[in-house]
Amino acid sequence: MRQPNSQPCSELMLRETASQTAGPYVHIGLALDVAGLPERDEEIWSRMAKPDAEGEHIEVIGTVIDGNGDPVRDALLEAWQADASGRYQPAFDLQKAFNSFGRTATTAAGNSEWSLTTIKPGSVARGDGKVMAPHINLAIFARGINIHLQTRLYFEDEVEANAACPVLGAIESPTRRQTLIAKREEVDGKVRYRFDIRLQGEGETVFFDF
């Protein structure tokens, strides 16, 4: 009798399938253009907001840095964020002006930066009534990352909201909170936020378990 690949952890519950690294060629599956593959009719990619989306249009950009200070050139990132009014829009549809979900990647080219074209999210309330500052949830997958890392991008110009955010406040070290704050830049009159993710060592980004 062949064993099933799902394992019981109690009489009532199965074990979650174990995670594995996305490996060096994750782009073939999740970022076809980056791998050099022809794209399909519709791809899930980094343009989360079209020009007619409601809200403040922004670009978020950054690098992923390893424990030696070197750029990670093969990371895939996934973003999940609320719309300008603070509501998540689960129905992914490329006909819509805005999608809450997007993907981006760092590559071997240039500065190895990832970027997302989106709108600034509104504040989101938690079930206990506390209001979280505007943020973008990010998941990082790459070769050498055995289970994806989960973090949040907050905005430098949301000083009051950030100070009151229960999630930022739950990070014991105020110094470490700063690793989640994206810096505002203006480039050709457009608003851009820079968010460099440091996987390890000095200035290591806070990663969450949830």
């Binding site: 690294t21 390893d66 424990g67 030696n68 070197d70 990670v72 999940w80 609320a82 998540y88 689960p90 129905a91 992914f92 999608n99 809450s100 979900f101 989101v124 309330a125 938690r126 079930g127 206990d128 506390k130 979280m132 943020h135 949830n137 790459a142 070769r143 050498g144 990352i145 055995n146 890392l149 949040r152 229960p166 999630v167 739950a170 990070i171 470490r176 996987l199 390890q200 060592g201 290591e204 980004t205 806070v206 990663f207 969450f208 378990d209 949830f210």
Partner: peptide, 26 residues
């Protein structure tokens, strides 16, 4: 590759989950 790509700090646990983590794309 995991040696230089693994966080050295503990993960921060979100004690109160919110709509941010409880929803996702369809």
């Amino acid at each position: 590759t995991s040696v230089a790509r693994s966080p050295s700090q503990a993960l921060v646990s979100l004690q109160t989950s919110s709509v941010s983590e409880l929803t996702g794309p369809d």
